[in-house]
Write a protein that binds this DNA or RNA. Structure first.
Length: 281
DNA sequence: GCCGAATACTTGCAGTGAGC
DNA sequence: GCTCACTGCAAGTATTCGGC
């Protein structure tokens, strides 16, 4: 019997008369297991007759990873979920196997737990978070994954936000608040260091030490999130959006946007528009 | 914990060209 | 004509490292 999957699937095994040794059966069993891991994440029944080719990459891109980490650490669960949704959509489109979905879920969950532990949240609260991560192992469809990720990320970000707000790190909490509210202005490390009576070099190192990310990474993450929102939900020109999110120059905005998302602002808007029209129509 | 100097990186400007 | 993408270059800014 497929012990690990006994609660989720029912398997009937017919043994060919050609198999005489236990080792042969064992090999067939492991082959079958690898096939089940390659099954598509769909709710309808599937007929699996052999191995199939799977998408090579099922993780966040390096830029998405940086943004996910920045959003997680600053307690922005909505943006974290957006990135997860994008990744799950991509995996669905590429017909990733259920094993790849599990691997992706495990890697995200362990990263979330790592950062919550690094923030020195009380162990009892971390234990309750781990319940959500265990829930990821029981997901049967992409809707399940979205739901469990939502619960996990909302709880984790809430813990991280309250940790900063609990005045254990009052300075970093204030800094993140300024960055999140004044991203549209010409916000520099010099401005912040003057505001908090520190040198810019010390402040730079302090932000990196406390959050794991640089000042630039934080600002970029916040600005790009807002830019995506404006591109998707408004008819403002790219130039207007670049100014609204704090770039004085559209060239810098275009360059940064492409670096972070992999596509230009115009292409992003077009793609979002195509997706929304195909969903509504 | 904090600072100064060197280095690395980002930004803004100017210019060009493609597409509508 | 307008918007957008792209490039090279110079200037400005952020990061890192060694030291106090």
């Amino acid at each position: 019997m497929l012990e690990a999957e006994k609660d989720q699937i029912l398997v009937s095994i017919a043994v060919s008369g050609d198999i005489h040794q236990v080792s042969e059966f064992s090999r067939a069993y492991h082959e079958l297991r690898s096939w089940t891991a390659q099954a598509k994440l769909v709710e309808e029944a599937q007929l699996i007759t052999g191995s199939r080719s799977l998408p090579a990459s099922v993780s966040l891109s390096p830029a998405q990873e940086r943004e996910f980490t920045a959003s997680l650490q600053s307690g922005q669960d909505a943006r974290c979920l957006q990135l997860i949704d994008q990744a799950l959509d991509f995996m669905l489109r590429k017909e990733a196997g259920i094993g790849q979905f599990r691997f992706f879920a495990d890697s995200i969950a362990s990263r979330v737990i790592y950062f919550v532990e690094a923030a020195q949240v009380e162990p009892t609260k971390i234990q309750s978070l781990k319940q959500w991560t265990r829930g990821l192992q029981d997901c049967q469809c992409v809707t399940d994954y979205r739901q469990v990720f939502r619960q996990l990320l909302e709880a984790s970000c809430s813990l991280l936000r309250s940790k900063w707000d609990a005045r254990e790190e009052p300075l970093i909490s204030k800094l993140l608040k300024v960055m999140q509210t004044q991203y549209a202005e010409d916000l520099s490390l010099d401005y912040l260091s003057a505001k908090f009576n520190l040198t810019s070099t010390y402040l730079s190192a302090y932000i990196k030490d406390k959050t794991g990310l640089n000042f630039s990474d934080h600002m970029q993450g916040i600005r790009m999130e807002k830019a995506r929102e404006l591109l998707a939900c408004t008819s403002l020109t790219v130039n207007e959006i670049s100014q609204q999110v704090g770039y004085l120059n559209i060239t810098s905005f275009n360059r940064t946007f492409k670096k972070v998302t992999g596509i230009t602002p115009g292409a992003y808007r077009k793609r979002h528009w195509l997706q929304s029209t195909s969903q509504s129509g």
